[in-house]
């Protein structure tokens, strides 16, 4: 059965690292479906396989067993070339260490994915300026990454991830290198993306980041141990915190 509205779907996913005695099963027979427009957070201790899972979803690594589907298209069997093209056009990556091109300005970093996907320079520039505005960095367009704070660099990286209007944005510990203030800026952008209906998968160890998501999966030893719906469960708890007589 083909599920039309799943942005991401994996079935029987296994990833082994190493061989023989030293073989580790990083992802252990995982099934997952992320509907279009859902934001999903994946948490777990380091080494639980959450980053590997993210790499598999985005076609950065290939599974040892199982299937990976992006918007109804199976991607784990694609050629290297086809996979690279699909990654460029349909997947936006955000990494802990930003991975910006240090020689290019903030705006040029954001333009790059559109240019690589074959869009015109004018179109790339127009889109980049919109995205820089969206992450609140219009005034930093000409700065080099080295002239920006960690939080600003990550916001540039998020703008870059959105350059080709990706089907899904995959973020790996996006606030891992950021202080509290910068983390809040990134949370604000994720909240904005969530309400705009961007499909988003975030791997994180930060509960605050996880709490921006609609759904939270907990991983241990390559397996899912919990799958919780966070959205639409408001209890009015907040309003009841303070009574005048309390």
């Amino acid at each position: 059965m083909n599920v039309v509205n799943a942005a991401v779907r994996v079935h029987g996913l296994v990833k082994n690292h190493g061989r023989g005695q030293g073989r580790v099963r990083a992802v252990d027979e995982v099934d997952l479906e992320v509907p279009e427009g859902q934001t999903l957070a994946v948490m777990g201790p380091s080494g639980c396989g959450k980053s590997t899972l993210l790499h598999l979803l985005g076609g950065l690594e290939r599974p040892s067993e199982g299937e990976v589907w992006l918007a109804g298209r199976r991607i784990d069997t694609l050629s290297e070339r086809a996979l690279a093209r699909l990654r460029r056009r349909s997947v936006g990556f955000v990494f802990q260490a930003f991975h910006l091109v240090e020689e290019l300005s903030a705006a040029e970093n954001v333009e790059l994915p559109a240019l690589l996907a074959g869009r015109s320079r004018r179109e790339a520039r127009r889109r980049a300026s919109l995205l820089l505005e969206r992450v609140g960095l219009t005034g930093r367009a000409r700065h080099l990454p080295s002239q920006l704070s960690g939080g600003q660099r990550q916001r540039i990286a998020i703008a870059r991830a959105l350059a080709n209007e990706p089907l899904v944005v995959l973020a790996d510990e996006p606030t891992g290198n950021l202080d509290t203030t910068a983390t809040l800026d990134v949370l604000r952008i994720f909240e904005d993306l969530r309400s705009a209906g961007q499909t988003l998968v975030i791997v994180t160890h930060d509960e605050r980041v996880a709490a921006t998501a609609d759904r939270l999966i907990s991983m241990r030893d390559g397996m899912f141990v919990d799958d919780t719906r966070l959205a639409g469960t408001g209890t009015g708890w907040l309003g009841g915190l303070i009574g005048l007589e309390g």
Binding site: E207, A210, T212, L230, T233, L238
Partner: peptide
Amino acid sequence: LRRLREVQ
């Protein structure tokens, strides 16, 4: 976590 989401 649901409460955290609400407050945030």
